[in-house]
Deep mutational scan, measured.
Amino acid sequence: TEEYEYTDEQQAREAAREWREKGYTVTIEEHNGRWRVKTG
């Protein structure tokens, strides 16, 4: 599992979409105004 943090929701969603296209399972969670994208 890798985790990436973004301050911008749009960036987080874009990144998540790219990971999904590569076949990863992706979770996005908002935490204190930051967006965490977890792949695994």
Results as ranks from 00 to 15, higher is better:
residue 17 R to G: 05
residue 14 E to P: 00
residue 8 D to E: 07
residue 6 Y to Q: 01
residue 26 V to M: 02
residue 29 E to H: 09
residue 37 V to D: 00
residue 5 E to N: 06
residue 29 E to P: 00
residue 5 E to I: 13
residue 22 K to T: 03
residue 24 Y to W: 07
residue 15 A to I: 07
residue 22 K to E: 04
residue 2 E to I: 14
residue 29 E to V: 11
residue 31 H to L: 11
residue 4 Y to C: 06
residue 2 E to R: 14
residue 22 K to L: 11
residue 11 Q to I: 08
residue 12 A to G: 02
residue 5 E to P: 10
residue 26 V to K: 00
residue 23 G to W: 02
residue 15 A to M: 07
residue 38 K to P: 02
residue 35 W to P: 00
residue 24 Y to R: 04
residue 17 R to W: 07
residue 19 W to P: 01
residue 10 Q to M: 12
residue 4 Y to V: 08
residue 40 G to H: 15
residue 27 T to S: 10
residue 18 E to H: 13
residue 36 R to P: 01
residue 9 E to W: 09
residue 2 E to G: 14
residue 13 R to A: 08
residue 32 N to T: 04
residue 26 V to G: 01
residue 10 Q to H: 12
residue 35 W to E: 00
residue 23 G to P: 00
residue 2 E to A: 14
residue 17 R to T: 07
residue 31 H to D: 10
residue 8 D to Q: 05
residue 2 E to N: 14
residue 27 T to F: 09
residue 14 E to H: 08
residue 22 K to D: 03
residue 11 Q to Y: 05
residue 2 E to L: 14
residue 22 K to R: 11
residue 16 A to N: 01
residue 1 T to Q: 12
residue 1 T to L: 13
residue 18 E to N: 10
residue 1 T to R: 10
residue 40 G to W: 15
residue 39 T to Q: 06
residue 10 Q to S: 12
residue 7 T to H: 10
residue 26 V to W: 01
residue 9 E to D: 03
residue 3 E to H: 10
residue 17 R to Q: 11
residue 28 I to L: 09
residue 8 D to F: 05
residue 27 T to I: 12
residue 3 E to C: 15
residue 8 D to W: 04
residue 9 E to M: 06
residue 10 Q to N: 12
residue 22 K to A: 08
residue 25 T to E: 11
residue 13 R to W: 10
residue 10 Q to T: 11
residue 12 A to D: 00
residue 27 T to C: 05
residue 34 R to W: 07
residue 6 Y to A: 02
residue 28 I to S: 01
residue 35 W to L: 01
residue 36 R to A: 08
residue 8 D to T: 14
residue 29 E to S: 11
residue 5 E to M: 10
residue 12 A to T: 02
residue 38 K to I: 15
residue 25 T to G: 05
residue 19 W to N: 02
residue 18 E to K: 13
residue 5 E to V: 11
residue 34 R to Q: 08
residue 31 H to T: 08
residue 31 H to A: 09
residue 40 G to T: 15
residue 3 E to D: 09
residue 25 T to F: 13
residue 34 R to T: 13
residue 26 V to N: 01
residue 37 V to A: 01
residue 14 E to G: 05
residue 18 E to D: 09
residue 29 E to K: 07
residue 39 T to F: 15
residue 16 A to L: 05
residue 33 G to L: 03
residue 30 E to C: 06
residue 38 K to G: 04
residue 6 Y to P: 01
residue 30 E to Q: 11
residue 3 E to F: 15
residue 11 Q to A: 14
residue 6 Y to G: 02
residue 26 V to H: 01
residue 37 V to F: 03
residue 23 G to T: 01
residue 9 E to Q: 06
residue 18 E to C: 12
residue 9 E to V: 07
residue 6 Y to K: 01
residue 13 R to D: 05
residue 38 K to S: 10
residue 17 R to Y: 07
residue 33 G to P: 00
residue 16 A to I: 04
residue 40 G to E: 14
residue 7 T to P: 13
residue 24 Y to I: 06
residue 2 E to V: 14
residue 14 E to I: 09
residue 19 W to F: 12
residue 20 R to K: 10
residue 1 T to I: 14
residue 6 Y to C: 03
residue 6 Y to N: 01
residue 2 E to K: 14
residue 30 E to K: 10
residue 20 R to A: 13
residue 6 Y to F: 14
residue 25 T to A: 09
residue 25 T to I: 13
residue 28 I to V: 12
residue 16 A to R: 01
residue 25 T to D: 10
residue 13 R to P: 00
residue 16 A to Q: 03
residue 26 V to I: 05
residue 38 K to D: 05
residue 5 E to R: 05
residue 21 E to T: 07
residue 24 Y to V: 06
residue 30 E to D: 05
residue 19 W to I: 04
residue 11 Q to S: 14
residue 24 Y to G: 02
residue 3 E to Y: 15
residue 33 G to H: 12
residue 23 G to Y: 02
residue 4 Y to Q: 07
residue 11 Q to R: 08
residue 2 E to S: 13
residue 27 T to H: 09
residue 35 W to F: 07
residue 27 T to L: 08
residue 27 T to N: 06
residue 20 R to T: 11
residue 13 R to T: 08
residue 33 G to R: 03
residue 25 T to S: 11
residue 35 W to V: 01
residue 21 E to V: 07
residue 1 T to M: 13
residue 33 G to S: 04
residue 2 E to Y: 15
residue 11 Q to D: 12
residue 30 E to A: 08
residue 31 H to M: 09
residue 20 R to G: 06
residue 25 T to M: 10
